[in-house]
Design a protein around this nucleic acid. Sequence first.
DNA 1: CAGTTTATTCGCAATATTGCGAAAGCGCAA
DNA 2: TTGCGCTTTCGCAATATTGCGAATAAACTG
Lengths: 106, 106
Amino acid sequence: MPKTLKPTRDAVEVLHRRFYEGKPARLKNLEEARANEEIARKIHELRAAAALTQTQLARLIGTTASVICRLEDADYEGHSLAMLRRIAGALNQRVEIRFIPIRRSA
Amino acid sequence: MPKTLKPTRDAVEVLHRRFYEGKPARLKNLEEARANEEIARKIHELRAAAALTQTQLARLIGTTASVICRLEDADYEGHSLAMLRRIAGALNQRVEIRFIPIRRSA
DNA sequence: CAGTTTATTCGCAATATTGCGAAAGCGCAA
DNA sequence: TTGCGCTTTCGCAATATTGCGAATAAACTG
């Protein structure tokens, strides 16, 4: 195989292996854990700011208190956009999503 | 029933009916449609900026091209936080989520 | 202390999202 | 035209999230 033929695919796979194997994978897990924790905290803060109980917020979005409690659990990993929007909507907020570049340590 | 007993629950339900019935409900759908469209566009832009094909990006996050295509479809309504993070991670980005107050028209 | 409200945890059914291949459409260059 | 790469669409199985009640814990009130 000539070394200049279709380098893109190989490069992509090399990038893939670099990113998902080794340290970055572990860092990624930590980042996600922090992100989930932050979402849980934001939901709790939003609800507290609105002076609502879990049961009341649950009614607003058509679910039950146990669901709200789960969302506010820092260890919960199942946050969905749909649920965040329901909560935001009930509390007169909107969910903004942004992709922000990560600077890799040189 | 005395009119001052447990007003909170009723108030919450009134708020609920006001918000989810009538105009706001329709507005909410429009807002969601726009939001989904925006997410689809962002994913496409991010992938284009990285000069990757759908198949290449799919490999990066361990899925197939048809899945990426679905995510970039403006009419797709199933966007999940998990998937956004996978894409962001593969492209050296992080997903930021913010709740932003909506000012209701007076 | 008892009584009340709120919050948490668990299990399982219902719903939603993802995974994946196959087929077809599209654009472009030979 | 054909071939090739890229994209789009479809259907269904696999996985993930949600819904919900019940039981318990925790916090607060009288």
